[in-house]
Structures are given as structure tokens and as C-alpha cells.
Design a protein around this nucleic acid. Structure first.
Lengths: 122, 122
DNA sequence: TGAACATATGAACATTTGTTCAAACGATTA
DNA sequence: TAATCGTTTGAACAAATGTTCATATGTTCA
């Protein structure tokens, strides 16, 4: 164990140096990956997904969204904030009612791709 | 408060009955939504995203993936299990080395849509 | 057969996440 | 102006998640 002290607990070594180098070279910047993960994380919750789906059918106010989902108005509002921050929904105020709607054309396509996948794997 | 006891603590009422009914009618089944959320959840972690991206460049063994990501072999293995369960990657064994690769064409498209979005909103 | 290696897995732990509850904020209306 | 309504927000809390560590599994090679 003498001269191997510094690597004594490495469990795993590179097997194909060429592949590792080539792939490392083509990898996206880690920050971009983080950003992308944050984006997809938004789709990873059924409450938010339901909101997005509902809004793809019609513009709606917060109370109505809550009614459709069967979720508390507060929970919906919290999730709308996240969707807003990710620029997936926009809103307009009319008196004390706030109407939300989609703010991005990619939503529908991402939705469809996801559905295609889960329909295929079962 | 007499006859309203059952709804006394409802903070929010339906505002547009017609919209709520129409959207409720067109909503997807909740189970489908859950399933879809589970699927997108997989994309919502940067380690898994990096693995998927790396595999879009080349088939790779676990050790090499770990090397490219700078993550422990164990962490990679745990995440590969999730990707496997979601049928996003497949693998083949060659001796004691296991090679992973993509198992779905939607991955690349979903990736691209996500990137398009985050590139637009900044 | 036993040592070495690539990978998988379970338990433990810290972190993140989503909901609820209570309260605050704006806008309307009586 | 006060009460009401639709919405937002912060704190608290339980549940879910990702990593690490230790160990197990399965394969090769000496």
C-alpha cells in the first residue's frame, strides 16, 4: 500500500482513455447542464404538469385552475410562481382576477415527446 | 354560518363555471399525468442529464461515464438504474465491463426542445 | 482456487421539494 | 372606509431525492 496511498481508495479507473477524452471534449458545459436540469425539473411534478396541460386548453384564472386540479388555491399559486420564473406561463390582471396562459411553444412539443415515450415503453 | 358549515373554510370558488367544466372534460387522466411527471423527473437531475448527453455521443462503460462526469462510480450506477427503469438506456455486457447506450430516439429531441427554451429566455 | 476488477445495491444522511396554514396584499364593492 | 374577494407569500413540516460508504455480485485471470 506504500506508494499507492493517494489512490488506494479509487474503486474505478478509466478503461477507454480515447473514448473518455473524446466524449469529455464534446460534453456541454456543466452550467448549461444544470440550467437544463432546472428546466426539466419543472415538468417533473404532476401538479405543474396538470397546470400546463390545463392552460394548453384555455387561459384560466387561479381559482379555476385549483378547481380543475382539485388542489388548494395556495398550492396552485406556489407552482404558478415556479412556472412563471421559468417563463412557461404568462399572466394578465383583470380587476382582482389574474388570468394565466402559456408563454412558450415548446411546452406542447415536449409534452408530446414525453407522451410518445411512456406510451411506447409499456 | 349555519348552512354553510361544510364550505365555510373554502378560500376560493369557481369563477368561470363553463371554463372549468370544459377544461375538466378535456383533462388527461391523473394517472397519465403522474406517469408523465415521473418520466420528466428523470431529466430533472444534472447527473442523469450528463449521462444521457454523454451516451448520445458514444456508448460507454460505467467507469468511463464516471470519469467523464467527475462523479463517483456508485452515484453513476445508481442513476443508471433509474435511466434503465425508465427505458432510456440499454446495456450489454462484455466480460466484466458493461456498456450503456441510448434506448430511445425521443431523448435527443426532448433535449433539443429544452435547450431551445433556455436559450430563448435568457 | 483466490485475487483483482467492474458493477450493483442497501442503508444512512443531508438536501431539496411540495403542501398546508396563516397572514399579507391589491382591487372591488357596499 | 370597511368588508370582501382573488391572489401571493413566508414559515413549518413531512416526504422524496441524490450522494456516500460499505459491502455484495459476477467475471476474468493468474
Amino acid at each position: 500500500m506504500s506508494k499507492h496511498d493517494d489512490i488506494e481508495n479509487i474503486k474505478c479507473n478509466v478503461i477507454h482513455r480515447d473514448v473518455v477524452d473524446s466524449v469529455s471534449d464534446k460534453m456541454m458545459e456543466p452550467e448549461k447542464m444544470e440550467e437544463l436540469a432546472e428546466f426539466f425539473k419543472v415538468f417533473g411534478d404532476s401538479t405543474r404538469l396538470k397546470i400546463l396541460y390545463a392552460l394548453s386548453i384555455s387561459e384560466m384564472c387561479v381559482c379555476d385552475i385549483a378547481a380543475v386540479l382539485g388542489t388548494s388555491q395556495s398550492a396552485v399559486s406556489h407552482q404558478l410562481k415556479i412556472l412563471r420564473q421559468m417563463r412557461l406561463v404568462k399572466y394578465r390582471r383583470e380587476g382582482r382576477v389574474i388570468y394565466y396562459s402559456h408563454d412558450d411553444e415548446h411546452i406542447t412539443e415536449i409534452f408530446r415527446k414525453g407522451l410518445e415515450h411512456i406510451n411506447e415503453i409499456k
